[in-house]
Design a protein around this nucleic acid. Structure first.
Lengths: 220, 220
DNA sequence: TTTTAATGACTATCCAGTCAGTCATTAGTG
DNA sequence: CACTAATGACTGACTGGATAGTCATTAAAA
């Protein structure tokens, strides 16, 4: 369960004040996602970033602050990007939904950042302030984006009248599931389900639904 | 972060060999879900169950075995129940889907057991064998149940032709999301979204889809 | 030469797991 | 039925190992 990390090759004791924080954040994200907050040793984080433990403490006050910095620095840029995309989009709500879902996947899901939701879920009990931060700055804003798409579709007569708030939340479920899957079960699958096939099915499901339209019964 | 648990009122040192394991399992589930595996102190588990730490070791070999027992004992009965329900159900696939989703919610989601998925997700990196067990005995069987419903609906001409494998997985997303939500974000909501409204919207979404049927355009 | 980034040995604490001893219960005896 | 011996469920102080966080020292850069 615990073993010291390999030291990244390179000169020891070089002074690189500017790049240390990001390197430490990346190493910390990797290990926190893999092992969780409590089970991650700061010595391993440091050595994965190619420095000693003392150096880590030059840049972060303590383990908890490092953890918060990992979450904050990783996730805010993404949500801002998504909000921008929706604001400037011209086209049908269905197309917008498609491109937002695929955008989330390519910017987060397919990335180390997909581990952040896992971390927040795992540690929400131990870091309620952090969970609240994530709730307000990521989840609420993310759900607002999704609700905006649904409302736009309804206004344009493209979508049925649905209850936007719970529907938006439900629609994030399959996206979250795929992110968590990456980190928990992907290695057990014989042939991992490709993201493209998954999201195509998901989009077909929510756009067209399962039930055959009654009118089809009249055809031969 | 760590404080000793309140001792449950009652006589100390009563001999209750039969009921200890379940009481310990329940206390352990509560604390593991709240704090995660590594951050849970066995002394707290024991004291929440009203015994001393030594007693815990009479019934479980070590912390890891306790953790595995929590997962195994909590989740297997549920999946077996779901499989039974599907086997004997007579009625439309839509009705079956409704009753399976609501059954999962009332038997797991609304229960402490909803913390088990959270635990597995959080600790899959530290307990790969346990994650594999869960993958094979719960997830695969659960997805098979869902695929069975979809295939039944397609055979009966009730559902469109869809790609059952990824669709089944996507359909579990909103259910999982709601379970995780309970444990991570519910306390932050001003007025928590009621499960009934959520699942009604979810079922409407997947059964009817978002897009208005073209035929509606002909109506006034 | 001065400044300061980087180091790693050190300390203080925390907790999983142990075990010698305690006492509630019950089987055995008169 | 009353009394005692034997059992084993239960306890909690203790130990050994691990690791978060510190700080005097080292050496790269300016």
């Amino acid at each position: 369960m615990s073993s010291s990390e390999k030291t990244r090759p390179g000169l020891r004791r070089t002074r690189r004040k500017e790049s240390r924080p990001n390197e430490l954040l990346e190493a910390a994200l990797e290990l926190f996602v893999e092992r969780g907050f409590a089970a991650t040793r700061l010595e391993d984080v440091a050595s994965r970033a190619g420095v000693s433990k003392g150096t880590l403490y030059l840049y972060f006050d303590n383990k908890e602050e490092l953890f918060k910095a990992v979450v904050r620095s990783g996730i805010l840029p993404v949500i801002e990007k998504a909000e921008g995309l929706v604001g400037q989009f011209r086209g049908s709500a269905s197309e917008l939904l498609r491109s937002v879902v695929k955008g989330i996947w390519s910017n987060v899901g397919d990335t180390l950042l997909s581990g952040i939701p896992k971390l927040i879920i795992a540690e929400s009990g131990n870091f309620p302030e952090l969970a609240r931060f994530y709730y307000e700055e990521v989840i609420c804003r993310g759900l607002a984006v999704m609700q905006g798409i649904l409302r736009r579709g309804m206004q344009q007569g493209e979508f049925r009248a649905i209850d936007a708030e719970p529907t938006a939340r439900a629609m994030m479920g399959p996206v979250l599931l795929m992110m968590l899957w990456q980190h928990s079960f992907r290695s057990f699958e014989n042939e991992p389900l490709r993201a493209e096939r998954y999201f195509d099915s998901y989009l077909t499901l929510v756009l067209d639904g399962l039930q055959r339209p009654a009118s089809l019964d009249r055809l031969p």
